[in-house]
Structure formats: C-alpha cells, structure tokens
C-alpha cells in the first residue's frame, strides 16, 4: 500500500535583503523594477521614504529592511512592487531589495502565535528555512496609526 501525501504547493517570490532571503506570496507581486527617482515630501509615517512614479501611478516606497534585519540597507538594486490590502482596498507598495528575485513553488507552514506579526508562515527551500512575509502587517497603514496612538494614550491614561 502506498500513502500519497498531497502537497499544497503555492507560488512564492523569494527576495533578498542583505544576507537574508524572505518570501512573499506570488499572488501579491506586481513587478520587479529598477530603482527610479524617489520623490520625497514631508510626512510623519515611519518607514516610508517617499514615492515613485510607475506606469502613471504614484507608489509609496517602504523600506522594511530595518524591521527585518535590524539595520537599514545601503545598497539596493530593485524595487519589488507588491499589493497591500487596506481593508477592502488594495494598493501598490514598493519595497527596496538588494538582489534579484526568484519564483518558486513550495508548501507553506502556517505561522504560530509566537511568531512575529509580520510572519505569514514558513517555507523550506534549498536547505534554508525562509519567512513568508505578511505585507499587511509589515508595511504601514491606518491600523498602525491607530495602534500607535492607542499606545501613546495608554501611559497617559494610567498616570
């Protein structure tokens, strides 16, 4: 008797940030583009560098390296443009990455409670265990602003 295990393979894009690799569900990726001019203007949202113009759209540039690696990247070769959900709305976000990206098929293990909020799951590839990123928690959005303002108010309320 043979037992066949049906693997639920999904497509992921592997991206490189410094020495580490991360994965994002391929269904969220729009394109990988060469760095273009970043337009900067005053704002108060951390992690956002500015915006780039892409196919007539204005796309925010979000540097996630500090959150994932603990340091900012000095070299960047591409922008990975991915869709980020804001409730029912979807918008593009550009993330600077340091190397070329790779499309793979793999089975994802779901994240557990103890994992960081930005971890959607894990996958194994080339003998490496790779974090699958949850862009909705990794990149800023209205829910982050609400959480930050709640955190600011809590100590005041307690005092």
């Amino acid at each position: 008797m043979t037992i066949s295990t049906e693997l639920e393979l999904q497509s992921f894009v592997l991206l490189r940030l410094g020495e580490r690799r991360f994965a994002v569900s391929a269904s969220q990726i729009a394109e990988l583009v060469a760095p273009s001019r970043v337009f900067r203007f005053p704002h108060r949202t951390p992690k956002l560098e500015g915006v780039i113009l892409r196919r007539g759209r204005i796309v925010p540039v979000c540097d996630v390296s500090e959150m994932l690696l603990g340091k900012r990247l000095t070299s960047r070769r591409f922008y990975l443009i991915a869709a980020r959900n804001y409730g029912a709305q979807r918008e593009w976000v550009a993330m600077p990455v340091t190397g070329e990206c790779e499309l793979i098929n793999a089975e994802m293990m779901a994240a557990v409670e103890s994992d960081a909020p930005h971890v959607a799951g894990w996958l194994s590839h080339d003998g490496e265990v790779i974090e699958v990123l949850n862009l909705d928690t990794l990149t800023p959005g209205p829910e982050h602003a609400l959480a930050e303002s709640a955190a600011r108010q809590t100590p005041e309320a307690q005092s």
Binding site: P42, H43, R44, T45, L48, V51, R57, I58, V59, P60, C62, R84, Y86, Q89, E91, V93, T139, P140, G141, P142, H144, A145
Partner: peptide, 14 residues
C-alpha cells in the same frame, strides 16, 4: 491622486 493609504499620520490632514 489620493494620498496612498500607507501614509497614515498627520500628512493625511495636510
């Protein structure tokens, strides 16, 4: 173009 939703602090009022 509307300010991208990633911008989520005072700049939304600005």
């Amino acid at each position: 173009q509307a300010l991208p939703l990633s911008f989520c602090h005072e700049e939304r009022q600005w």
